[in-house]
Design a protein around this nucleic acid. Structure first.
Lengths: 191, 191
DNA sequence: ACTGTAGCGGAGGTACCCCTCCGTTTCAAC
DNA sequence: GTTGAAACGGAGGGGTACCTCCGCTACAGT
């Protein structure tokens, strides 16, 4: 659980300012941005984000000099959250730990989609986040494989993309999403 | 195979102009728009689309008086293509016909995503397209169920969303996409 | 309490996009 | 070939978003 194990943690910690008012504004901007990304995707207006956060546009640009840095920060924070969850579920049964982790994916994918659209793969943050993600979730999957409940002819990268695709899709209701996800996971499970 | 069976066919046919130059411009605009949607999603610039098509912005607006109508036309054309493919594969083995049809999904989903973003469910075209889609693909799935190769505790709506989600996802390469899709379909197949 | 400095907000210049309008061009019917 | 109707292109007005810049504010260290 060292800082090196999850490179994304450094990104999350490094930017937050020290002065009290500044830190408050920083947090408000991150929240407002996450909300705006969920609503408008990659084209959320920065001026709108500043407005939501109740700060001037100048404050937004001081904290995040470029659009890219704002996207990266929001994304890194979300990945960090998912890393935390992986630790939380680690003591459950192998298959159940894995599915519990994936249950948190829907929220994460909302941000992820906007960020991927906006940054278009050019950012090194994807490497750090993927690495953290794999370090967090990979062991859950490998444990399931070793316990003999998950098929061995696929890797974690295959699995995470499958789940990502399904959770990012629009369903008629949450019950359908759960049903479809569980059918797809039936393809992963050994019987 | 009457016109009524696939409501989307009416939408596709009705708009294309009769004069030769006008028809050529109309086709160029549809192609340019599909390309722009793939690149920039719902926020593709109409002026850019006209530029790509090699026509003036005025011509675009004459053919598609509103942004919405352009999106609808591109989308309807894509759905129509998928309807055609369903007829093409109908004479193969049940399971193979189904997977062959889904193999054409990736291209369709590119447009679909932009259109869904732009129209935000408010358009009645989604009903016509969904109906056509189900009329085209549904029988392929039901045939697989009756042949005993597809599980019976899910419906075509579940299946199509599962495949849509997976094909819309970014993979490292096409081989991975195919592998993941086939694993998910293993969850659908009876063994 | 004082004060220097980090932080603040928003006006405004630039750029792009939307959409309308109308003078010009091209088609096709005769 | 003539002609009129249909189609064309793009200038331009209105709007919005990006980002910079700088006079003002409020925190925190002494």
């Amino acid at each position: 659980m060292s800082a090196q194990q999850y490179p994304v943690q450094a990104l999350v910690a490094s930017r937050r300012p020290h002065r009290k008012d500044a830190a408050r504004n920083y947090d408000a901007l991150l929240d407002a941005a996450r909300e705006a990304f969920a609503e408008h995707g990659a084209d959320a207006s920065l001026e709108d984000i500043a407005r939501r956060a109740g700060v001037g546009i100048g404050t937004l640009y001081r904290n995040f000099p470029s659009r890219r840095e704002l996207f990266e920060s929001v994304y890194a924070n979300d990945v960090n959250e998912l890393v935390r969850v992986a630790e939380e579920v680690a003591d459950r049964e192998p298959w159940e730990a894995l599915t519990a982790w994936f249950a948190r994916f829907a929220g994460y994918m909302v941000t992820k989609r906007a960020v991927r659209e906006a940054l278009d793969e050019e950012s090194e943050i994807f490497d750090a986040c993927r690495e953290s993600m794999y370090a967090a979730g990979g062991p859950l999957f490998e444990r399931a494989q070793q316990a003999g409940v998950a098929r061995k002819d696929m890797d974690f990268g295959d699995l995470i993309r499958m789940v990502a695709g399904i959770t990012a899709t629009v369903f008629t209701d949450d019950a359908q999403r759960d049903r479809v996800l569980s059918i797809a996971l039936d393809g992963v499970r050994t019987r």
